[in-house]
Write a protein that binds this DNA or RNA. Structure first.
Lengths: 233, 233
DNA sequence: GGCATGGTTTGACGTGAGTCAAACACCAGG
DNA sequence: CCTGGTGTTTGACTCACGTCAAACCATGCC
């Protein structure tokens, strides 16, 4: 199963942003194969040797870090068009686990060949740097969440973030399915699953969001936004 | 005041890692000038146009993100040999503030020229990618801190991290001066300054650390490490 | 169709960290 | 040497979120 960026409808989000047609065709040659990952299976694990980064073609992943005593911290949820594996560049070993939240498919981008090609194609180099920088900025946002916001603010920010990402992919920004459990959301937001559940119930009561298990319908986007602006602890 | 990587004793930490002497000399030409920043002054602010990244030659910085309502989240403390400004690449606008914690000096690395040169020098490209990736991995560690650890564990991890970074620069890993206030530490760790202060006092009582204002002497490194391994909330 | 199973919701209660407030320590400047 | 300002410590009290436990609800398998 051969990947082909030039045929892929994720142009606008993925690595080929800003590249010419000819350049994207050179990228095709580089992006070796696609790989299918079944739900709950790892794409890579902390400690694995690093040799490629991955672009999500279909599906959802979570990345997490485990402490020796078993505590898990989910560091991100990744969807179509987003990149995985950047953590491995620094030490040539992956530092987190990437687990599929549903049956998924990724494009495998051998890292040394990516470096090679991005020395030749300015647009590729630039876009790759942007992707890494975007990840850093995203992480700072999560720190803000974890360090300075209260439980309901965190959940509101989380929902707004998902909404915006669905929207960018042409899906409804107001209605979507969560692929992760309350526990995983809690881990990401630094909360217990019960607190996440209670916050959902509260949003429901206040008419901000209609929640039915994993199905979410945002009813008052502005209300959610307002929730975040207010002073916290 | 001209920078010169080839004369600089930060070889081992900074961008020139892994480059040949000739290559480092080419880097000299690129790294324009040094810039002095006085204590409490910004190197850049959120919203500033991005056109360069910075390597810290001497001094200390903090980076922070501000919410509209005035809440501050410190996203990092940077010391000699570390890089600032990577957040700006993604949108060509800085997304956080970088403030000097003491009178400091940075090397200014014009970004477009860095991209240019790193297309020519493989070692520079690779090292630059590593620096960005390392930042991502660091951020994941902070998320772990903020999301899954208790107050004392956070402070212990913070001290151990400083210790290790001082050590890497040839300073004592056991005795050092903090450049930041309790409030700034608290913001970074997602705690209030009072909580930070109490945790310091507790460490002192338990003989883990001798604290005298900003002067820190770590007396029981293993004890601090042990503190982190234990199950949290 | 019934019955595990894994995930979710809700309630009652406990606690770690936040809040508020006062006292204290360390400079820097006059 | 005193004085004002900024940062730190400590105590008493509060509260948001965690913990524990029970009930509930979808889903898939026998």
């Amino acid at each position: 199963m051969q990947a082909a960026c030039s045929q892929c409808n994720l142009h606008e989000l993925c690595l080929p942003v800003g590249m010419s047609i000819e350049e994207v065709e050179r990228l095709d040659a580089l992006v070796g194969a696609r790989r299918k990952i079944r739900r709950q299976q790892p794409l890579y694990r902390a400690g694995d040797a690093f040799d490629a980064i991955y672009a999500i073609k279909v599906g959802w992943f979570k990345t997490d870090v485990l402490l020796e005593d078993g505590r898990e911290q989910v560091t991100g949820f990744q969807m179509t068009g987003e990149m995985l594996g950047l953590d491995g560049i620094s030490t040539e070993t992956h530092s987190c686990n990437a687990i599929a939240l549903e049956d998924s498919e990724v494009c495998v981008i051998p890292y040394n060949r990516l470096e090679e090609l991005s020395r030749e194609i300015e647009g590729l180099q630039h876009q790759f740097h942007k992707v890494m920088s975007r990840e850093i900025v995203r992480d700072h946002g999560v720190m803000m969440l974890l360090g300075s916001m209260r439980a309901e603010e965190r959940l509101a920010a989380f929902l707004l973030n998902l909404s915006q990402r669905f929207n960018a992919r042409g899906f409804s920004p107001a209605e979507f399915h969560l692929r992760m459990t309350r526990d995983e959301i809690g881990s990401y937001l630094g909360l217990k699953l019960e607190t996440v559940s209670r916050a959902f119930s509260r949003f429901q009561d206040e008419g901000l969001v209609a929640v039915q298990q994993k199905h979410i319908r945002i009813q008052d986007l502005a209300g959610l936004r307002r929730l975040i602006q207010q002073a916290g602890r």
